[in-house]
Design a protein around this nucleic acid. Structure first.
Length: 617
RNA sequence: GGGCCGGUAGCUCAGUUAGGGAGAGCGUCUGACUCUUAAUCAGACGGUCAGGGGUUCAAAUCCCUUCCGGCCCGCCA
């Protein structure tokens, strides 16, 4: 870097409104989204030209380049909480998401995901076809899975699906579509006409920007790749008549070179793309963006230059920014390309959607670990957060946050749980959450009012099973038995409505999946097929006691009597009670802990129990 | 090398905006209950608030500095 460039950069002062760390310093509200909402309102109300009936626009966006993971969802979920805070104040909000799908494929990802969210290796798709498409826009590359119109559309669909599963209403906008429909034409022509100024502003941020720099990258009409070498700009009277001439040259992408074909041609403004540093501000202008959250990678790079371009080249006010810190997954950074990812789809196989939404209510300015091993803690924390909302006597601080953050967390859930008449939805399919959404977007004032009414009304009666307890309940597939155990253990209050009990039991499938995946101590499974190896070679006293217990079970059905008899049998044979229970768990679960044995054995079929106690099968 | 963000109990994190008692949950340990589904209840242990210096009657909090982690400062998004 030259000394001149260094000095230029230092001279470039950031506009005071453009500090992306908006959550720093004194905040007007305990819940960050409300503080951001207030900033947006200041911006909107300070704009005299603005029609007060225009909706507020909140945007997010990423390249649909591969597996959209939980960290990517910050682009949507953070904006959601801000949008909801604004709607709570009576403002109309459009939440849009741009799929930055005209970006070129710059390398081969090692992992992809099908539309159901199953991650697959590159070897399972046509990798060769992908390799031939390096340098082309994502929307010009065939879908490796063959199910969508293009690579870009495939992964855009996956992102959209993730938002749907969280019950977040988002308008998807294809960047390619903005170019092809001509919506970007005016701003593109403006940038070409004012390319001297554009280049001057950007040169404070990028060394490469020199006298030759043109803020437009045409797509080669021969090979379809995005090119960087513009040889002439032909400004027409109108954007439609404006063209650029180019030579298709090599492009550096990371450590490899994507070869150009050498073609020389002419492109219209619909046949190319703006460089990101201009494209982002162009999106703000074209879509009228008032607020955009973005990852910390942008905070010191493209955001300052983008805000500068907006103010001093396009002469529009940039959105209210919000830089967020990244998530890690089990302590390691997310990596779409290597497959160290968890998608919304995966997470919802283990968690209630409201718990996942809750994860995103936490302070965006701190990095946060999504720990699969400790998902029970997240669920417990959510349960406490929910109690803080409903309980009168919660601590002031936590209650304030819960008051603001809980309704947007809960609304999509109640919208899925109750129909338009406020009646519990019958025939829900809770076992397959990703297939049968457990969240529904709440759209419009009517639905919103109803959802609020439900949150503060009927939903008060919801029942939450402690997550680890729910995991243990997975040991039996019998819904009636699950319910009986839950009731016996006192988790269901007197007079709880039917829907609340069914809803509580929804948690079992997910929690069990979690226990299975992590292989932790809550992963109980009744070993019906054969006797666990660990139950061999028992002491003669224990064997005798088991035989006696088998006799008792053959003639008694009462859960409490059987439970009592376990103690009695152990004592009669001078076997340690704890040890005897452990043997019982070994026999039935191949574990040294388990459910309260008496009532559980009473519920299983007698023949099996008797045979297993006799170690026969 | 420069800039930015973060670092609080074994784990997950509140508290830092306006200086005054170092906290919660989980885990661990102990005890109790004729004692076994995440048991429950009671109690205990557990931190030089990353380190050092400074301001102050008083610092997790303000200032300086060092260390650690992440991001940006080439390209790209």
């Amino acid at each position: 870097m030259s000394d001149d460039a260094e000095r230029d950069r230092q001279e470039r002062e950031m506009h005071p409104d453009d500090d992306p760390y908006v959550l720093q310093g004194r905040q007007p509200h305990p819940f960050w989204a409300e503080s951001v909402a207030e900033k947006i309102l200041e911006r909107v109300e300070g704009d005299a030209d603005r029609d007060s009936s225009d909706p507020i626009v909140i945007k997010g966006g990423i390249s649909p380049s591969g597996v959209p993971h939980l960290g990517n969802m910050n682009e949507i979920v953070r904006g959601y909480f801000v949008a909801e805070a604004l709607r709570d104040r009576g403002h109309e909000v459009r939440q849009v998401f741009t799929a930055d799908d005209r970006d070129p494929l710059r390398g081969l990802p090692r992992k992809l995901a099908d539309l159901d969210g199953n991650v697959v290796g590159l070897g399972e798709v046509d990798a060769g076809a992908l390799g031939r498409n390096l340098g082309k826009p994502y929307t010009a590359i065939p879908d490796p899975f063959g199910c969508c119109d293009s690579y870009g559309e495939h992964f855009s669909n996956l992102i959209e699906r993730s938002a749907e599963l969280l019950g977040i209403p988002v308008e998807m906008v294809s960047n390619t579509e903005l170019y092809e429909s001509g919506e970007f034409e005016d701003v593109t022509r403006y940038l070409l006409e004012n390319r001297e100024n554009a280049r001057e502003v950007l040169s404070h941020y990028q060394d490469k920007v020199d006298a030759e720099y043109v803020p437009f990258n045409p797509i080669c009409e021969d090979c379809g790749k995005i090119t960087e070498t513009v040889t002439a700009v032909n400004l027409g009277e109108t954007p439609e008549e404006t063209t650029v001439e180019y030579t298709c040259t090599d492009m550096e992408a990371g450590d490899q070179t994507i070869e150009g074909c050498g073609h020389e041609g002419t492109a219209t403004l619909r046949e190319g793309k703006l460089p990101w540093r201009f494209e982002w501000p162009a999106q703000w202008q074209v879509l009228g963006v008032d607020h955009e959250p973005f990852g910390k990678d942008h905070a010191e790079g493209s955001w300052p230059s983008g805000a500068d371009v907006a103010r001093n080249v396009l002469e529009v006010e940039p959105p209210v920014p919000m830089a967020y810190e990244w998530f890690t997954l089990d302590g390691e950074p997310f990596s779409s390309s290597s497959g160290h990812v968890i998608m919304v789809q995966d997470a919802l196989e283990m968690l209630d959607p409201e718990v996942l939404r809750y994860f995103f209510t936490k302070d965006p300015s701190k990095s946060r670990d999504f720990s699969v091993e400790h998902l029970d803690q997240l669920a417990d924390e959510f349960d406490g957060f929910e109690r803080d909302y409903y309980d009168e006597d919660a601590d002031e601080g936590t209650a304030e946050i819960a008051d603001a953050a809980y309704p947007p967390v809960a609304r999509p859930t109640v919208a899925a749980l109750f129909d338009e008449d406020g009646e519990p939805v019958a025939d829900r399919e809770p076992a397959n959450r990703p297939v049968e959404p457990a969240s529904r977007p709440v759209v419009g004032d009517g639905q919103r009012a109803q959802a609020n009414e439900l949150v503060d009304g009927q939903f008060r009666e919801r029942v939450r099973l402690p997550y680890t307890f729910a995991a243990v309940l997975g040991m039996t597939d019998d819904p009636a038995l699950r319910e009986e155990i839950v009731r016996r253990e006192g988790h269901v209050p007197e007079g709880a409505p039917e829907w609340a009990v069914a809803y509580a039991l929804d948690r079992v499938e997910g929690a069990q999946e979690w226990a299975r995946r992590t292989g932790n101590e809550f992963d109980y499974e009744l070993k019906r097929a054969e006797i666990p190896d660990g139950a061999a070679d028992l002491d003669p006293e224990i064997e005798a006691a088991l035989d006696e217990l088998a006799d008792f079970v053959a003639t008694h059905d009462d859960p409490d009597e059987i439970q009592g008899e376990i103690y009695e049998t152990a004592k009669r044979h001078d076997v340690d009670v704890g040890e005897f229970f452990a043997v019982g768990y070994r026999l039935f679960f191949d574990d040294d802990q388990g459910p309260k044995l008496g009532p559980f054995l009473a519920k299983l079929d007698e023949e099996f129990v008797e045979a297993r106690l006799r170690r026969e099968k």
